[in-house]
Design a protein around this nucleic acid. Structure first.
Lengths: 156, 156
DNA sequence: ATGAAAGCTCAAGTGAGGTTTAGATCAACC
DNA sequence: GGTTGATCTAAACCTCACTTGAGCTTTCAT
C-alpha cells in the first residue's frame, strides 16, 4: 500500500489538469464519488485520476456529461474504466467520429454545389433540406460545429 | 410590383421555417431590420427571406450570430447577399469545413492509437496533448486539455 | 501551537441562442 | 363594428458546463 492511498481534491485537480471547482461539479453530477474525512473534506481514490481522465477524453470526443455518466454507469459496480472497458468505449467513439466526418463531408459536397449557384433558395438548396429540425431538441443552446466538434453529426 | 411587397413577421417566419421569436431576436441582434406599420407592427421586405436563409445556412456551417453579423455588415449598404456575395462567403465556409474535417481526422488517428492500449495516461496519450482551441466557446475560462498540457502530471 | 494553504457550502453568474409568458394592441374579415 | 387571430413589449426562463464569491473550517508543516 502506498502511504497515501487517498488524495485530496486539489491533487486530483492538479493531476488531471482540471479546476477544483470542476471536480466538485462532476461529483455533484454523479460522475465521481468521494469519501470524506472526519472534517468533511473529500478524499478520492487514486483510480479517480483515471476516471477523470476518461471524462475529459470522452468530452473531447463530443459526449455530454450526461452521456458520459451513462457510459460510466454501464460499468459493473461503478468501476473505473480499465483497459478493456476503454477499448470497448473508444471503439464506439470512433464510430461517432466517423459519422461526424461523414456528415461534414456531405455538407461540404452540398456547399460545393451551392458555390457559384448563389440561389439560397429554400426549396432547391440542398443545404436547407437536410432535416436539421430534428436536431433541435428542447429550448437549450444549439450545438454548433465549432462549439463542440460536431453535434451536427446528429443532423442526419 | 407585387401586391404585397412587405410581409409580416409571421410570414417571414413561415417562409424560412424559423420561429417568430427567433426573427425578433435576430432583429434585436442587428441581423435584420424591419419597417413598422402605423400600429407598430414589423413589416419585412421580401428580400429578407433570403437574408434569413443566409443566416440559417451560415449558422449551420458553424458561424456564430456575431460572425454572421460581421459577414452581413461587410456587404455594401447592408445589402442582402446576392449570388456573388454568396460565392465569396461560401468559399470561406468551405475552408472552415475542411479544417473541421482535418481536426476530426487527427483525433480519429489518435484514438486509433489508443484503442487497445487503454493507457489513459495523461503523459503518453495523444488524445490529451492535442491543442484544439476550436472547442473553446461558452462562458468563463475553460481549462481545456490543450491549454495546460504542460502542467498535467502523470497518471500513476 | 500557530498560521498559511487548502477545503467546505451555497448561491449566483456566464454566454450563446433563443423560448415562454403576460397582458395589451393591431389588422382583417364579415 | 365586432370578433378573431396575429403581433406588440418586456422580462423571465431554459440548457450546458462550469466559475466565482462570500464566509467559514480543516489540515499540515514548522
Amino acid at each position: 500500500m502506498h502511504r497515501t492511498d487517498l488524495i485530496a481534491i486539489g491533487e486530483l485537480a492538479a493531476r488531471t489538469g482540471t479546476a477544483v471547482s470542476a471536480i466538485r461539479f462532476y461529483e455533484a453530477k454523479g460522475l465521481l464519488a468521494a469519501l470524506r474525512t472526519g472534517g468533511g473534506q473529500r478524499r478520492f481514490l487514486r483510480a479517480d485520476i483515471r476516471r477523470v481522465s476518461f471524462i475529459l477524453i470522452a468530452q473531447q470526443m463530443g459526449l455530454s456529461l450526461d452521456e458520459i455518466a451513462d457510459e460510466l454507469a454501464r460499468l459493473p459496480a461503478g468501476r473505473t474504466p480499465n483497459a478493456a472497458d476503454w477499448t470497448r468505449i473508444s471503439t464506439g467513439l470512433r464510430a461517432r467520429i466517423d459519422a461526424q466526418i461523414a456528415a461534414l463531408a456531405r455538407t461540404r459536397e452540398l456547399l460545393d454545389n451551392c458555390i457559384g449557384c448563389g440561389c439560397l433558395s429554400l426549396r432547391k438548396c440542398g443545404l436547407y433540406n437536410r432535416e436539421d429540425k430534428a436536431a433541435q431538441r428542447g429550448a437549450g443552446p444549439r450545438y454548433l460545429l465549432g462549439d463542440r466538434a460536431g453535434e451536427i453529426a446528429e443532423v442526419d
